[in-house]
Structure formats: C-alpha cells, structure tokens
C-alpha cells in the first residue's frame, strides 16, 4: 500500500503524517507538491494539517484549486482512501468531497489540547481496529474546527453512519452535535479535526492515533493484498 501526502504552501503537518506512515505502517510514502496533478501510483492520500495559503480568505478555500486536488477528487472517486486531518479536513469540505463547512471556534480562540473522542462507527476503513463506542484520546490544534451543517445534512450523516468521531465530554470548538470527524457516503473519504499522527507513541501523551493508520492498512491490504 502506497501513501501520498500532498504538500500545499503553508502545510506544516506533512512531515508528521509521512513519519507516522513510515514508523507505524512501514509502508512507502511520498510528499507530493501541490502542483503535481497525478496521484495514480498511490492507494491512499493523506491531506495534512497546517495553514495552506495562510488560511487566507477561508481555511482550505484556496488550496482546493490546486492541481493536486483534482487528483484527490479522482482518487476518492476510484475508491482509494482519502484522509484529511485538520486543515486537510477543511480542504475536503471546501472542495465538496465532504458535506458541511467550518466556522471559527465558538470561544474564538485557537485551541491545542488532548481531547477524548467517541468512536461512533467502527465499520469504516479508518476505524476497524477501534471498538464501537470506544473512548479514545487524540490531540487537537485548531482555531476553526466548529463544524457546521444544516439539519437535513446532519440527519443524513447520522442515518448513513457517516459520523466517525464525536467529542466525548467537553466540546472544544462548538461543532454541531460534537462532531469531530465525518466521512463521505461511500466511507472512503474521512475528514477529522484531531491529529492521529500526533498520537502514535505513549511519550506523545497518547498513542490512540496509531490504530487509525493500522485500520487503513488492514482494510486496504485485506481487500487488495500486501502490495
């Protein structure tokens, strides 16, 4: 299984994502410059956190017009796994690959802390190694993680099991019903505000993020073999 991490001007978690793949999955991973419109060699795309284009205009709004995003949309369409973390989630929303939009945190401040999440659906390619309803701890670090969608969209997300994670206990940003991560209808595109790549060893404060990457690998290689 080959991984790509697109790099936009202003991405700053690209290396961290690549490191997680290398160290936790021991699979090949390439950083792909945003001008590159070809992601054919890859099976999974990790859109990293950061401040693509300085988050100017709106978070993720400018990155979505990069050539690499056309390739991401194509990859999603072909059933490859696409994971957007933090700014990567915001880009997926702006690009319309996931429904809804992101607002400024309700308390108006940037917030960096380790939060407790509940795994709402463990039948996704990204969550297979978690228990359903399990509480896990992952770090967040964002100023705009206040997820919004209208009631109709929310109902659809709930009915189709597209809500992957919710904040358990404190909601750190005011997101609708405490949503921390959602998928598309097909389940192969996940966007989440918390950073699983920052939670892969105990010394980081929590290693609960490692299973998210392992789940992806198990799902993919279970379907396609270890290639």
């Amino acid at each position: 299984m080959r991984f790509a991490v697109p790099v936009f001007p202003g991405s700053n978690c690209d290396e961290d994502c690549a490191k997680a793949v290398r160290e936790i999955l021991d699979r090949p991973v390439d950083l792909v410059w945003y001008k590159n419109g070809n992601l054919d060699p890859y099976d999974a795309i990790l859109l990293p956190g950061g401040f693509s284009y300085g988050d100017y205009l709106r978070t993720g709004a400018l990155a979505r017009f990069s050539p690499v995003m056309d390739a991401v949309a194509e990859a999603a369409d072909r059933g490859k796994l696409v994971l957007g973390i933090c700014n990567g989630f915001q880009v997926l929303l702006e690009a319309g690959l996931l429904p809804g939009a992101m607002r400024v945190n309700d308390h108006l401040k940037f917030r960096c802390s380790i939060q407790t999440l509940r795994v709402e659906n463990n039948r996704l390619p990204f969550t297979g190694l978690y228990e359903e309803g399990e509480e896990i701890r992952l770090p967040i670090a964002h100023g705009e993680g206040n997820y919004y969608c209208d009631d109709g969209t929310l109902k659809g997300l709930e009915e189709r099991g597209q809500i992957a994670f919710r904040y358990a206990g404190e909601n750190p940003n005011g997101s609708v019903t405490g949503i921390a991560g959602i998928t598309n209808r097909e389940g192969n595109v996940l966007g989440l505000m918390p950073h699983p790549e920052r939670a892969i060893y105990g010394w980081m404060g929590t290693d609960d993020g490692a299973r998210l990457f392992r789940s992806m690998l198990r799902y993919w290689e279970g379907m396609h073999g270890a290639a």
């Binding site: 961290d16 997680a20 401040k109 940037f110 960096c112 802390s113 670090a141 920052r198 892969i200």
Partner: peptide, 13 residues
C-alpha cells in the same frame, strides 16, 4: 499555552 500549538512536528515529549 492552550492557544499555542505545542505538538506540531510531533517531537514534544
């Protein structure tokens, strides 16, 4: 310090 990203670069022990 909650307003500072103190974990980016995944090296903060």
């Amino acid at each position: 310090y909650q307003q500072y990203d103190h974990m980016v670069r995944t090296s903060t022990a």
